[in-house]
Design a protein around this nucleic acid. Structure first.
Ligand code: MG
Length: 234
DNA sequence: GCGACAG
DNA sequence: ATCTTGTCGC
């Protein structure tokens, strides 16, 4: 196991570096901007990472996948230290090999909707100095009101009276997802982007593609729609 | 002290 | 996240 008190201090320290713009400010997507959407599947401590690449307008550039190691064991609230390192390592490699520079990262987990305002999306955004969004399927913080039952409805998630995220309904009558700023993007734009990308299902299309490829790779299989990079060393 | 707790 | 069989629905 690890020293959780030290990791907690690291989160508090790094959380001060997170940039949370007010509505109307921060990163604003343009049609040709590149979005990296990430997911990981695990086999023990082996992490099978997938990076979906598409433009904001929807042009698909493909999916890359690589195998590396989890940062540490999974402990709720310390998830950034498990999934952050393998994501960062894979993203650096994909940028190098693809020549594509992401303007935005979409992460399967929370941003600042976290007890110390430092979820994995924030960790990754700060680490790479790239705007990031956190989208989770379950919340870590309690919330008062549920959003209306229609696609696009949202309600607040707060921490000590500070707005840190939203419960967002991405499909009519379907369970909502939980979105928050990761780094350098407003909650308003975060909601708009996730809603736009979740046109068919509860989970956004690019995250679904990343999830699928990571799953295929973890099973030792392959898929012609993706580029498999093998094991990342160091 | 006990249970909950993103993926 | 993973473990697992069937089942419902497009
Ligand atoms: Mg995931």
């Amino acid at each position: 196991m690890m020293n959780l008190e030290a990791l907690q201090e690291k989160q508090k320290r790094m959380a001060k570096l997170v940039v949370v713009p007010p509505s109307g400010k921060g990163y604003l997507p343009k049609d040709e901007d590149i979005i990296f959407s990430l997911d990981i599947q695990y086999v023990g401590e082996d992490a099978y990472v997938a990076v979906d690449i598409q433009s904001y307008a929807g042009r698909k550039w493909g999916v890359y996948a690589a195998q590396t190691k989890a940062g540490m064991e999974y402990i709720p609230r310390y998830f950034c230290f498990r999934e952050g390192p393998p994501l960062a390592k894979t993203i650096r490699k994909v940028i190098e090999l693809s020549t594509m520079q992401p303007s935005l990262l979409i992460v399967d987990g929370h941003g600042i909707a976290h007890p110390r305002k430092f979820g994995v999306a924030s960790w990754l955004g700060v680490e790479l100095a790239i705007p990031s969004i956190g989208v989770a399927k379950r919340t870590l913080l309690p919330y008062e009101t549920s959003p209306a039952l229609f696609r696009g409805s949202s309600s607040p998630i707060s921490l000590d009276d500070e707005r840190v995220g939203s419960v967002l309904r991405t499909q009519d009558y379907v369970k909502p997802v939980f979105v928050s700023t990761g780094h350098q993007i407003s909650l308003e734009n975060t909601e708009a982007i996730i809603l736009k990308l979740s046109s068919k299902y509860r989970v956004s299309e690019p995250i679904r593609r990343a999830d699928h490829i990571a799953r295929v790779y973890a099973k030792g299989e392959t898929d012609r729609r993706a580029i498999f990079l093998g094991t990342l060393e160091e």
